[in-house]
């Protein structure tokens, strides 16, 4: 399972990650970021391919995708 974190302080809620993820891991949540918009939330983390597109295309560097310990062993 991927360890996906979204920084509340950085995110501006532009929704790019929602559509860019090939596995559609991100969904819009009701949580607000510091900017005052709706933040995305990472669900279905098992599906992550570690392609890194969400990291690259997040304009605010808010997303960080790391492999968990068990994933690294694989």
């Amino acid at each position: 399972m991927a360890d996906i974190t979204i920084d509340k302080a950085c995110c501006k809620g532009c929704d790019i990650c929602l559509s860019i993820c090939p596995k559609k891991i991100f969904v819009r949540s009701k949580k607000r970021n510091d900017y005052g918009t709706n933040m995305p939330e990472a669900v279905n983390r098992d599906a992550c391919l570690f392609c890194g597109m969400c990291e690259r295309l997040c304009p605010d560097g808010a997303i960080s995708v790391r492999k968990t310990e068990e994933e690294k062993e694989k």
């Binding site: 920084d7 950085c10 990291e55 295309l57 997040c58 304009p59 605010d60 560097g61």
Partner: peptide, 30 residues
């Protein structure tokens, strides 16, 4: 925050003044 982003960006200056969804952030990360 993304680790790489943290390494190169001055945290105290955040958030950036770009509008949500602005392409400048993508160029910045590239």
């Amino acid at each position: 925050m993304n680790e790489l982003y943290e390494k190169y960006i001055k945290k105290e200056s955040l958030p950036t003044l770009f509008c949500p969804g602005c392409g400048n952030g993508i160029v910045q990360f590239a």
